[in-house]
Write a protein that binds this DNA or RNA. Structure first.
Lengths: 203, 203, 203, 203
DNA sequence: AATGAATGAGTATTCATTCAT
DNA sequence: GATGAATGAATACTCATTCAT
């Protein structure tokens, strides 16, 4: 990488880092492009050289943050699978969910930022577009999980949809509002519900 | 009602009606107070005479629209109960869900407007505050439904939370994005999931 | 006084009382006519029946408050004169100044309200117009004081002007800002300055 | 200075000049930011690029105008001191006062604009903050003047306070209202009063 | 004498975006 | 690649005043 190209990376990364800081502390709509370039120490025009507009930098941040969550979850699942080669599908799903939920619980600012963006729609994009989250073949991973034990499903896509919608919605509201109970209290009920949902989709 | 008071109602209703039209066609943030008063044919100050600010008129619209959905659902449940006095709890819940979902399906603009406002948080407010939705004693209704057949529950509040979060999130995304399938296709899976969730909460 | 006329007085007095409360707590420009009529418990139109506009009610309040300050000062001077029939002119002036300053010191809100209105311009109006402050013949009182001991003056009007401007300006700033010292500390210097000024005007 | 930087100065100066013109003809509160940018021939946003808000441009104008008054007064005093090395303190003070008063008399609009801002509070700020009025070390100048002849004072700060309050208040009212006499008529009395005040503070 | 609904002109301020340098 | 001065449309909200009842 040449020195110029390196410098370019530095400015871009500074914009990403500072905008994330501002979005999570002041809120997205209360953060202006001016705020971002001031924090990043670059000129206004520079922002528009690297990103189309505010939504563009937001999309990049979402992809980047989600990638991290999924990679961690994926690694944790692999470790569980190594220790226990015959995990039922529902337990694998719960391991992934638990990984993501635990990471989010430690970082409420990230929850607030991802807001409602971390829903099924996002996974569909990731599912279809292998380049959205580089290095994470979401489709293959999911297909591998649900067919690992020779199970057959009524509608595996709608099963995933149902589970993701339930998790994303309930966990988001609990972390953001703190009601109707703590995440620790809710988790057993949530995981039991997931197991029950998986069961209804099994043929 | 005197002529003045009648006139007053007319202006207020005109503001509510026109703002709803604009919110659902142009979007909330793309609708300015100026747009609203122009459509309603009143002066700017008049808006602020009847409503505190933009959020205030939005809140009134949400409450009004939700009230209608719940009233209709409540009536439909009553008719079912009359025809079949021994309905299981899960079927009662599904009747209510089905009523609301069907109404929303006919009115995607309403879904878009209610956005994520029609979630558990809203029902909690309605649950606690009898005056939020006048004439709908949400708490009593829910308590009556879940205890109607002598059932006992692990945690009835978290059961309601889980069901509402699942329904609101999945139905919202399907109606808004049309993916991953139609509401008609999804309903059976959704209702089976609800039945399974209720079962996990039964002692 | 008939019952109707009594009622009229009540509303008017309520407007005066509440507007003074609001002016001194929220500040004049931050107090709207709406605030006043809400506090007074009357309709907006009623305000405009009793007062021309905001400035009109402010003028009435200034006159009323000043009248009280001057009446008290006048009575105190009379008591001193009774006890000591041969008071020099400068001491009489200082007695009046001290009375007003002491009253103002106890009521900083009044100082803030009177702001810069309690200056020479106001006394000139009172001096010329016997009806501005009913019952206080300012001109006669001043003429009586300065000629009481057979003194003759270079220019008695400019003497009064100089003294009033010095007192009103310095006392206002000290009470409002608390700088450069307390009123107690400043008084001896102020009174010595007044004595010195009077001396320069004596022929 | 580059062309861009020059252009920048031009816009800023245009805003300062035009806002001063408008403030002194229409009054401060009757001059809107729109008025200012229209007169200056720049866009609205440009105003907020150079100044924080209306008060900010007012503060800049006050500092700028005061600086000019003080610089002129300072130069005149120096000339007098050169001609007469043993001027008494009171005469030095009167020379400064006379300089400022004469300048203000020629420019009643400036008096109206400076309003009550040119009082002791302002000089205290300038006294403490050497950067408020660049190039005018107010504190040093005053200290030099009052100690030049080996005089000792009861309280030199309160002496300055008393004199400034008297001058600013009386001169302001005469220039603005024209009463109770002309400035020419008043000056001898004012200067005699100042001399008398200085005398009372001398130990 | 009193009401209070209705007015609408008016104001400060923000901010994404551009483009000449 | 980078700058940052300049833009100007857009917006929410206020409030003194009126007048039909």
């Amino acid at each position: 990488m040449g020195k110029a190209e390196e410098n370019k990376k530095i400015k871009r990364n500074s914009l990403l880092l500072q905008s994330y800081k501002l979005f999570t502390t002041k809120g997205i709509s209360d953060t202006s492009i001016s705020d971002i370039v001031n924090s990043a120490g670059v000129a206004k025009g520079t922002f528009y050289f690297y990103f189309k507009d505010k939504q563009d930098i937001i999309d990049h941040l979402i992809a980047h943050k989600s990638e991290h969550l999924l990679k961690t979850a994926s690694e944790r699942l692999r470790r569980h699978e190594n220790a226990n080669p015959h995990l039922p599908v529902e337990e694998k799903i719960i391991i992934i969910a638990d990984s993501i939920i635990s990471d989010l619980e430690k970082d409420p600012k990230l929850v607030k930022f991802l807001n409602r963006n971390l829903n099924f729609g996002f996974y569909v994009k990731a599912y279809q577009d292998e380049n959205l989250i580089p290095g994470i073949p979401v489709k293959e991973a999911y297909d591998r999980i649900i067919s690992s034990n020779g199970d057959v499903w009524k509608n595996s896509e709608l099963m995933l949809y149902t589970i993701i919608e339930l998790i994303s919605s309930s966990v988001h509201d609990i972390i953001i509002s703190g009601t109707p109970c703590s995440l620790t209290t809710y988790k057993p009920y949530l995981f039991d519900s997931i197991r029950a949902i998986v069961e209804t989709f099994r043929i």
